[in-house]
Computed example of a mutant assay.
Amino acid sequence: MRGARTAIGARRRLFTLDVPLETPDGFGGVVRIYQPGPRVWGAIEAVALDERERGGRPEDAVTHRVRLRHRAGIDGRMRLILGARRFAIRAASDPDGRGRETLCLVEEIKP
């Protein structure tokens, strides 16, 4: 997958990686809040637009692909912030196994 690598100049968007902080809620669950973490440069592209139902109402789910410089430890509990837009990370991986970049599949969170 050598040709799929993103040129460093294409990573011109500055994201904030939101890190979750979980505290027990006293009932066996947790309360999750987010704290701004490191700022990372990345490239973003839309890959799908799905329509689904949530609460009996139709809702659009926009899925994007975000390519970042390699960063270990990114998981599905984290979020990416780009200006006023928020993205839930659905999957993160090292696409070629060389530790050069991290590919995140994300879904935009609508307010």
Rank of each mutant, 00 (worst) to 15 (best):
M1V: 10
M1S: 14
R2V: 12
A4K: 15
R11N: 07
L14P: 02
F15I: 01
T16I: 10
P20H: 07
E22H: 03
D25V: 01
G26Q: 02
F27M: 10
G28W: 00
G29V: 03
V31Q: 12
R32Q: 15
Y34S: 02
G37A: 03
G37C: 06
P38I: 12
P38M: 13
P38F: 08
R39A: 09
W41E: 07
I44L: 13
E45T: 12
V47D: 03
V47C: 00
A48D: 14
D50C: 04
D50G: 01
E51F: 08
R52N: 10
E53V: 11
R54Q: 14
G56N: 02
E59N: 08
E59M: 12
T63G: 01
H64W: 12
R65M: 05
R65I: 09
V66M: 08
R69W: 01
R69G: 11
R69T: 12
R77H: 10
M78N: 04
R79V: 05
I81L: 11
A84Q: 14
R86S: 12
F87Y: 15
A92C: 08
D94S: 00
P95K: 06
P95R: 06
G97T: 02
R98C: 07
E101I: 05
E101P: 07
L103D: 09
L105H: 06
I109F: 00
I109Q: 11
K110Q: 14
P111V: 04
